[in-house]
Design a protein around this nucleic acid. Structure first.
Lengths: 211, 211
DNA sequence: ATCGTCCTGTGATAAAATAAACAACAGTAT
DNA sequence: ATACTGTTGTTTATTTTATCACAGGACGAT
């Protein structure tokens, strides 16, 4: 159906549009033009219009866009109109931070279990979510359709665990380990490389220092 | 000195090159060609060569690149040859996770203090780093040159805190709050929007479902 | 109702990013 | 030595992305 390939750059911008529209919605803003939105978001109006028109015409000439409608439509595009069964592998600080982040629930991402190898953690609960042993992972994946697994384990263990997850049918991996995962192409990997992000910041700081 | 503007896309790739070269270094690989690196990293060899040549010729015809040298040079480009005084604002789970992440130290990012408003946390230590009261922040910034502040506070508080930090001379902000910060342009902001990342994953999962 | 203004959707244009191509040169084998 | 192979740095071509420009439709004022 959706014939034309949507560029990655467009997809990167969509969540940001969604966030801004959500903010406007909270402020009870009813309508907004691409021009006004562009000024707030520091992008060109043309880009907003063109990005949106990859998916259809959501606006109206002489009026602009209805904030609630556009927000909802972008949500649908992003797949936020469904629910995701999510698990977290690794109950370290980062894993716990993710488990505690209630905002994910609101967007349809439900963390149902956390897995770890640390006996001190196994059996405990984080925000009502049970920490299970890694030994239980396989059984869990067999009896539950897990959509997304967040990986927050050390770099060395990540590739092996990711392969296991892929083998057992997990199609979405949210990878926080500072390494790239090579998985079959039916598995979607989204990386969050914090150290890369910090290095980018460091680059830009150094660059400015040289001026 | 550095006349030509380096594109953002190039900067995004540098940390990844750096990571791969670090891995090769650990495996005692001495030399590598752009072709071999391109195969491992799933990019074109041409792109690697072109990216690197923005900064100078690090390789040798008929030989390739010396891994250690190239790693070190990219490190310099990224500003990893200096030390950064870093603080964390917000000692919640994410703040604690960052404080506990020892790898930052290795790259020259030293977390020296954490600030929070929670009286139960103030005075405690995380990996030897003291949690201080937000009331002490201003004094701390006056008596210490802070290079980078990581913001891990709720969305509503982030913009105000960021402005304070900017006013008090912090030039680098690592922002984990799910909102964009509008700061003077001498302040560099690097955003880590986890929810955006998750939405991108969700988009790609939904997209595949439709096939 | 009519006119003028506003603003979208989209086709044309410009700019930027990526990939391909290749000359030149170092290393290696014969 | 000499020729061959491999691989860079860089130029050129191609593709992709972003911006500009505008026709035409919708709204609101009069």
């Amino acid at each position: 159906m959706q014939k034309k390939e949507i560029s990655k750059a467009v997809i990167n911008r969509l969540p940001r549009y969604y966030r801004y529209l959500g903010d406007l919605l909270e402020k009870d803003v009813v309508r907004i033009s691409s021009k006004e939105l562009s000024e707030r978001m520091k992008v060109t109006a043309s880009q907003i219009r063109q990005d949106l028109n990859n998916f259809g015409g959501f606006g109206q000439q002489g009026y602009g866009y209805n904030v609630e409608y556009l927000h909802s439509e972008i949500g649908k595009i992003l797949g936020l109109d469904r629910k995701y069964h999510m698990i977290i592998i690794g109950a370290g600080n980062l894993g716990q931070a993710l488990a505690n982040y209630a905002d994910f629930d609101k967007k349809g991402f439900f963390v149902k279990a956390i897995f770890d190898i640390n006996p001190n953690l196994i059996g405990s609960q984080i925000r009502g979510i049970e920490v299970k042993s890694m030994d239980e992972l396989e059984d869990y994946l067999i009896s539950n359709k897990v959509d997304i697994a967040a990986i927050t384990v050390p770099k060395t263990k990540a590739p092996g665990i990711a392969s296991d997850l892929a083998r057992l049918g997990v199609k979405g991996i949210w990878n926080f380990a500072p390494t790239d995962l090579n998985l079959p192409k039916d598995v979607t990997v989204e990386n969050v490389h914090l150290i890369d992000s910090l290095m980018k910041l460091s680059y830009r700081l150094s660059e400015k220092d040289e001026e």
